[in-house]
Design a protein around this nucleic acid. Structure first.
Length: 542
DNA sequence: ACGCTCACTTAGTATTCCTTTG
DNA sequence: CAAAGGAATACTAAGTGAGCGT
């Protein structure tokens, strides 16, 4: 991956500074040792979050806290129910208020100092080129916040020391100095990988955390480009691949049929692979790990070419996938057969796993894996929708909304969601009030004078508000960013912007413009060769 | 063929920044 | 000018898949 690599290592979070505020235990104030106080504070600052009310979180936290207290002068603190974190919570609240109350001059000064401390870590040199480093900061200690029903939520994530960290750097480069009195776990010169530092995660001990290059770096853009090129190549093979799985779904051999049906689902629904997971992680699934209870056969049962299936399961990040889809008859019948005489919690596909699906895909196209379908499907959907819905010569705001609508369709396809913000309903109410007010004003004007000249402009404002409300409501749980960052070939967006005279910053943030800089000088009329392949999959299904 | 480790991509949420509004 | 609110970024968890040893 490289012949030359220089960097400045990692930036550690500041050491813990004790505040001396007591924990109240069984009604009595207890002044904790600094390392105990630190952990109590981890919980105290989360006291009012949803996490802190979950029994698993409390249990895991208390197990860790008790372990820490064991053998010390505060070992009598054993019962979570008797712990009162209010005083520490209040101290932290006041601290945060103080930060908020800083004058803009103070804020500027603090930011300046922060930037200065970070400056040297931000850049590294690979193969003679100065490149941005992504995450040079060592993760601070705290309580683990897993997603969904994670069995380890609330565990103490311990402080990472230099002794935990492996530095990967060029043989000729100056090795960054560990903090005084410390040494690195190891310094290596592995030219086959791109990470610059790494350590074992203390929660999931098999996992690794790495310091990697940033999104604008050559390594990252090069692999991004290859990802999108692979998706483009898939377009040339998709007809053949669909013929293959339609033929194989009819085979008696169970493994063959299961490979075909999973490929069909991946192609049509853009599902993830779904690797096997350990017991000590949240229970989530992908296409190959779907269980009988995740499917509901909605019919019609006899001879209808596109009967429906309701899918309801937790995917990556414990995000619920709950969608009903019209399914090709053969696939529907196969799925029913695979589920027959099985209990709810049994795997639908018992003969296969992602590596088998991928091995089969690679017989059809070199380098093809399940995840490529998501990239392909997302990108071609954006392309097709922009082709279909762009109104030539429209204003920039209309162009923006055209793009956002297409982006939204992709987000729904990929099931990219976000939690409804706490302020959403209040914001909607406010807009609604404003709208009512304007309508009242219009009514009164009409009563007083039928042809009042203010009326048209008021009407326009009401229409604008209506549209704003609809957009806000329809996007309240849809996340557009994930597909924009990871799935949508930037060349489609850039070409569309050029063609329609839309400034790129209308749809890309500053960071995205930089990330996709590699795509700027690509041919501007980037297209998928023939859209009919994609339409073939959609026809009849809706 | 299978299970496991490692390195990398993808993901939602927390925090910070910036613009709008009153 | 401050407060609110939304956009952008930072953070780190949670996936995928290659590759290796058995």
């Amino acid at each position: 991956m490289w012949t030359q690599l220089e960097h400045h290592g990692v930036l550690f979070p500041p050491e813990y500074e004790p505040h001396g505020v007591p924990l109240t235990y069984d009604g009595k104030d207890v002044y904790l040792e600094p390392h105990e106080e630190e952990v109590a504070t981890f919980f105290a600052v989360m006291k009012e979050t949803d996490y802190a009310f979950k029994p698993v979180f409390q249990q895991n936290f208390m197990d860790g806290f008790r372990q820490l207290l064991k053998g010390g002068k505060n070992a009598h603190i054993t019962d979570f129910e008797k712990c009162n974190f209010q005083k520490i919570y209040d101290w932290d609240f006041a601290r945060r208020e103080k930060i908020k109350a800083r004058t803009s001059e103070e804020k500027k000064q603090i930011k300046l100092e922060k930037d200065k401390a970070e400056e040297k870590y931000m850049w590294a040199t690979m193969n003679g080129k100065r490149e941005q480093v992504g995450n040079f900061r060592v993760e601070p200690p705290g309580l683990f916040r897993g997603r969904g029903e994670h069995p380890k939520m609330g565990r103490i994530k311990r402080r990472i020391q230099p002794e935990d960290i492996i530095i990967n750097i060029g043989k000729d480069a100056k090795v960054p100095e560990p903090p005084a009195g410390h040494r690195w776990k190891e310094v290596r010169h592995d030219q086959t990988v791109t990470w610059m530092a790494g350590w074992n995660d203390s929660i999931n001990t098999k996992d690794w955390k790495y310091v990697q290059f940033g999104a604008t770096s050559s390594v990252k853009s090069e692999s991004d480009k290859q990802k999108f090129e692979k998706a483009r190549t898939l377009h040339e093979h998709i007809g053949k691949i669909r013929d293959d799985y339609r033929k194989n779904m009819r085979k008696d051999n169970k493994e063959t049929a299961q490979l075909a049906v999973t490929t069909y689902l991946v192609d049509k629904l853009a599902l993830r692979a779904g690797g096997e997971k350990d017991e000590d992680l949240a229970d989530t699934v992908g296409v190959t790990t779907l269980r009988v209870g995740h499917l509901k056969f909605m019919g019609p049962e006899d001879n209808h070419p596109y009967p429906k299936i309701e899918f309801d399961f937790l995917g990556k990040d414990s995000i619920r996938y709950h969608q009903e889809h019209a399914i090709e008859r053969v696939a529907y019948d196969c799925l029913k057969r695979f589920c027959k005489n099985k209990k709810e919690d049994v795997d639908v596909f018992d003969k296969i796993d992602p590596s088998k699906v991928n091995a089969h895909l690679q017989t059809l196209m070199p380098g093809l894996t399940i995840k490529v379908f998501r990239t392909y499907n997302a990108s071609i959907t954006l392309y097709r929708l922009l082709e279909e819905t762009t109104k030539p010569k429209a204003t920039v705001p209309i162009m923006k909304s055209t793009y956002d609508e297409a982006n939204k369709e992709v987000a729904i396809l990929c099931n990219h969601q976000k939690g409804e913000s706490k302020q959403h309903q209040a914001g909607m109410d406010k807009l609604n009030d404003k709208k009512k007010e304007l309508e009242k004003e219009m009514k009164e004007l009409r009563k007083a004078d039928k042809n009042h000249k203010k009326l048209p402009s008021l009407k326009q404002r009401v229409e604008k508000l209506k549209l704003q409300m609809e957009t806000k409501e329809s996007l309240k749980t849809v996340s557009l960013g994930t597909s924009k960052i990871n799935y949508l070939d930037p060349r489609i967006t850039i070409a569309w912007c050029k063609k329609n005279e839309v400034p790129l910053p209308t749809v890309y943030t500053k960071a995205l413009v930089q990330k996709f800089n590699w795509a700027m000088c690509e041919e501007p009329d980037y297209v998928f060769a023939d859209l009919s392949y994609n339409i073939e999959l959609d026809s009849g299904a809706h």
